[in-house]
Design a protein around this nucleic acid. Structure first.
Length: 249
DNA sequence: CGATGAATAT
DNA sequence: TATATTCATC
């Protein structure tokens, strides 16, 4: 009697995935989809918790999938730390397909960048990242590369960007410029800051806003201009344009 | 030439 | 969304 077993050696089944999303609904949806793929799913709504779990049992997960926007620590920070401390594939999620964000995610080491709403078809493929990561490391096999990208026929028109980090990417542009130094090099900054925000954006705290209002009132609503407001506020590092900008809001 | 406010970009 | 930056005008 031939008892056909459902592929006992199929790896993806039971793959341990850690899903992180601050939005409970999204998280639930994600969890459901992942479970349908027969993965072993663990969920958290906080990135810090995810980090803790990952640090606690370094070998208990095969892959991390997390949202980019999160209150405690940004998805990028989590991605960075995970990539640094442990060697796990990380998949990023976000609601908008802003190419800049996608680019940032990929260059920061994400294995993939999925857009919400995530389709189960996409999740069915993510195990490939785990396999690749594991196989590349042990041996340096320079055999034929597997670069097939199965497209499942759905019939929908919307396309999703997919990228893969393989080996090292290095791009350096050498440009001989004339005597004109106006070169700005993008600098990666690693900071234990709450989101990956390294540009001291002026934050209009309540206090600052009060000063602003006070200054405007002092001058008279219709007579107040950015320059005088700025002067009356006497706040260092605050530019007239900051005030002007705030004036619009 | 610089301040200003609106439009536009990130 | 909030704030920055650019732009046309005064």
């Amino acid at each position: 009697m031939a008892v056909e077993k459902t592929n006992g050696d199929q790896f993806p089944t039971g793959m341990r995935v850690l899903a992180v999303d601050d939005d409970p609904t999204s998280l639930l949806v994600l969890e459901t989809l992942l479970r349908r793929c027969e993965y072993h799913v663990t969920t958290t709504s906080q990135a810090v918790m995810a980090l803790k779990m990952l640090r606690d049992n370094k070998n208990k997960f095969d892959l991390v999938i997390c949202d980019v926007h999160m209150p405690d620590i940004g998805g990028f920070k989590l991605l960075e730390l995970v990539g640094l401390e442990m060697d796990l594939p990380v998949i990023l999620l976000s609601g908008n397909g802003d190419p800049k964000l996608v680019m940032k995610g990929i260059t920061h080491g994400a294995c993939d960048y999925l857009l919400k709403p995530v389709r189960i078809e996409e999740l069915k493929n993510i195990w490939q990242h785990v396999v690749r990561r594991k196989k590349i490391c042990p041996k340096d096999r320079n055999n034929s590369d597997n670069q097939d990208k199965p497209h499942h026929g759905g019939g929908e028109g919307a396309g999703t960007g997919n990228s893969d980090q393989n080996g090292k990417l290095n791009k350096r542009r050498k440009d001989q410029n004339e005597d004109e130094d106006e070169e700005r090099d993008e600098n990666e900054n690693e900071n234990e800051d709450q989101s990956s925000q390294k540009k001291p954006r002026v934050v209009w705290s309540v206090d600052l806003h009060q000063k602003f209002v006070a200054a405007v009132n002092h001058l008279g609503i219709d007579k107040a201009g950015p320059k005088e407001i700025l002067d009356l506020m006497n706040v260092e590092k605050l530019t007239r344009e900051n005030v002007a900008s705030h004036l619009q809001a």
